[in-house]
Design a protein around this nucleic acid. Structure first.
Lengths: 207, 207
DNA sequence: GTCTATACAGCGATAGAC
DNA sequence: GTCTATCGCTGTATAGAC
């Protein structure tokens, strides 16, 4: 899901999305301009407006593509090992997804947008909330399954712990920013997983 | 001195900081302008520049005041109960500090600035990192004490778990923003504490 | 689909009167 | 200490040529 250029014959719209995605993840939605993207791609601001009429349209497309990729990655985890991955392993894969996001000084697109939430156009707000809802639903399912088979232990409901996991991983990305240190994120992620699966010491590395 | 209809005896500089603090916590450092503060206080942008020469100076003063208040709050926790508060209780008080921050759609000042980190002037960056370092040191001390007396249990080092706690609480503020729901934050905070003090189910929640 | 050119609002910041 | 006035720059967005 990390984003980044995919192929060389990628269309202009996709290249705009790639550059904008990186800029939002690094500098925030209020921290970049059409001029930044135009300069990076070697086109003019006017050309950008042809592909995405306004910044709000661009932002909405950004979230849609990002959420789709994330959903595909979650489906891939469910399908891995012919659907035989144990809950703790799926959690580790989930954390590994986040590890792939933070490269190059980025943080989660929707985590960044959550910080800027009050300044976002309403359509973007709804899309951001939807992203978190989907992650929460997937994690709740995994956690409930892990509790049922005894491989995961946590207090309260599976939904509450799902929210805790998302909060901790997003917060780990956020608080790692001042230190430009991916290892710092990895250690925090490992600490979270270890707290949920105290028995499975060998399963907890998200790398 | 001059007499506008001011609520209190608070000086202009302090009132500027109050307004700016709220604006940064809600909209981010890149999401407000001198005009916003001036309009709110009924003064002009030029008057603002008299008190804080540039936006970077204002931002630095903001972090300094915020960090000082936080340090005082931590010292108050250490002093509470004549220094007899148990580690789990001190942790709960720590989480309660965060709960007081998120009112009115705010999030932690330094959490917000961490998201905007790459766009901040270098002096502000150093101050933000210092805030997290201080929190980490305080938490590490509490966690180590809790492990020593058997009241807290966690994997890895006390420092790693301290970073996990900060990440989870900051992330809980971040991910609660789309839902405008303080209860959502409270539940996540309780989930974190419960994971560290599994024996103390009756341990008071951060409310 | 991309360009040049431009409109127009907003930004941080400064000079000088009072 | 606050004001009016203004500067230079950047922001998003648009019109119309090619």
């Amino acid at each position: 899901m990390g984003g980044g250029p995919v192929r060389e014959d990628e269309g202009t719209a996709a290249r705009i999305l790639d550059a904008a995605e990186r800029l939002v993840q690094v500098r925030g939605f209020n921290g970049f301009s059409y001029a930044d993207i135009a300069g990076e791609l070697g086109i003019t601001k006017a050309a950008l407006h042809y592909h995405f009429a306004g910044k709000a349209d661009l932002g909405l497309a950004l979230i849609g593509r990002y959420a789709s990729r994330f959903a595909e990655a979650l489906a891939a985890i469910d399908a891995a090992g012919a659907g035989a991955l144990r809950p703790a392993q799926r959690l580790a894969e989930y954390a590994a997804l986040y590890l792939g996001v933070i490269q190059d000084g980025r943080m989660c697109l929707c985590g960044m947008l959550a910080a800027e939430y009050p300044t976002l156009p309403p359509p973007m707000r709804e899309a951001v909330a939807g992203f978190f809802d989907e992650n929460e639903a997937w994690l709740e399912k995994v956690l409930a399954e892990g509790r049922a088979d005894g491989s995961l232990r946590f207090p309260g409901t599976a939904r509450e712990s799902a929210r805790m996991v998302i909060a901790a991983l997003e917060g780990a990305m956020l608080t790692a920013r001042p230190y430009s240190d991916a290892e710092r994120f990895r250690a925090v992620a490992a600490s979270i997983l270890a707290g949920l699966a105290p028995d499975a010491a060998a399963e907890r590395s998200p790398a």
